[in-house]
Design a protein around this nucleic acid. Structure first.
Length: 321
RNA sequence: CCCGACUUAGCUCAAUUUGGCAGAGCGUUGGACUGUAGAUCCAAAUGUUGCUGGUUCAAGUCCGGCAGUCGGGACCA
């Protein structure tokens, strides 16, 4: 596979690559490093899984993958005590493994290096280069809501910047909510004499309730280790307007998790409603948009697909207990 | 360190000048209507009133102490 073909693959399902020419250079390396950081979270859901799927693809293309279990970041963001977060991080690691990342994926706990002297120096350097306004703004989509925002919330993006240097990453992958932090990092790293990584952003998927963002705090997610019944119940209750192809969480799940794995989706429906269908992505969107496919039939198909898709994750997690 | 204000359901807030059964909206849950969900309609659940001591027949309400948050003042050789 040549570099152009690789780039085409990487672009699938991403909103932006900043920038593509730099990515070409990175792809000439033997084993470029790609990283994503996750705040340890009580549940790993399909939103997280969008980025994990992309990391798996990068892995197949020869990247070395580093996953930052960002325990300090979670701590700074008010998610609990360091001890609680460490436990959650261990659980999250199993979720990521269960989603199929290769065994040589490196899982790194933030606290294992984020107090080092060189690292700390980087953070202080960055602190002198970053205005409060800019740092706060970068946290718009990331910061947990707080009526009394703490200094911690502006240290957060500086640490995320320093992470990229400390982990020697070539590519930083994240959901679109990370964009402002990543852009700040790209701007500041050269100013402290470090190289900025290529930034790749994936779309956020809508919550099952139709909310802008699937998030563990809102309970509008499907967790990667949800069991069959839970998946059924959650999809059944999901927002899914007839004919609506924008902001429809069920179609988004089809997009990111079905059509990234296979070309067509089998939709089983009773004869009286037209009988079974096998549709590719374009056909599905067209047919749904024209109201020729009922939401319930779509939901049933996605429910069954997700049950099968997440089954190995669940089994892996159980085998680890 | 000093002064003041605030703290009530998951969230936002009510609860009369003058102590008398702690409420609403939103959210949540259930039902109706739809071959899904939502919208709409109907119904239901939910409280250590920040903690603590006191006054009183009776305290969310009055008094004392503590804590948290916010604001101001003071300190600045």
């Amino acid at each position: 596979m040549n570099i152009e073909e690789k780039i085409e693959l990487i672009q699938e399902g991403t909103l932006e690559i900043i920038d593509v020419d730099e990515l070409k250079e990175k792809l000439e390396k033997e084993h470029p490093i790609a990283y994503t950081g996750y705040e340890p979270s009580g549940k790993i859901h399909l939103g997280h899984a969008v980025t994990i799927m992309k990391l798996k693809q990068l892995q197949d293309l020869g990247f070395k993958i580093k996953i930052l279990l960002a325990d300090y970041h979670a701590f700074l963001n008010g998610k609990g005590t360091v001890e609680e977060i460490a436990e959650t991080a261990e659980y999250n690691k199993r979720c990521f493994q269960g989603l199929g990342l290769a065994d040589d994926t490196e899982y790194i706990l933030g606290s294992s290096f984020q107090t080092g002297s060189e690292y700390t120096n980087d953070v202080y350097q960055l602190a002198t280069l970053t205005t409060l306004k800019r740092a706060k703004r970068s946290m718009d989509q990331v910061s947990r809501h707080d009526d009394n925002p703490k200094v911690a919330s502006v240290v957060y993006p500086l640490m995320q910047t320093a992470d990229m240097s400390a982990l020697e990453v070539d590519v930083a992958l994240g959901g679109m909510e990370q964009r402002k932090i990543q852009m700040l990092a790209r701007e500041n790293l050269p100013r402290i004499g470090k190289e900025a990584p290529v930034c790749i952003h994936t779309p956020l998927i809508h919550g099952l309730d139709g909310d802008d963002k699937m998030s563990s705090s809102k309970g509008n997610y499907i967790a990667v280790d949800d069991d069959e019944k839970t998946i059924k119940d959650k999809i059944k209750k999901s927002y899914c307007p007839m004919g609506e192809t924008e902001g429809n969480p069920i179609l988004e799940i089809a997009d990111h998790f079905v059509f990234s794995q296979q070309d067509t989706l089998l939709i089983e429906r009773p004869e009286k409603f037209g009988g079974n269908l096998e549709l590719n992505k374009d056909e599905l969107y067209t047919m749904y948009g024209e109201e020729n496919l009922h939401p319930m039939d779509l939901k049933n198909a996605i429910t069954q697909y997700l049950i099968d898709f997440l089954k190995p994750v669940r089994e892996f997690m159980e085998s680890q207990e």
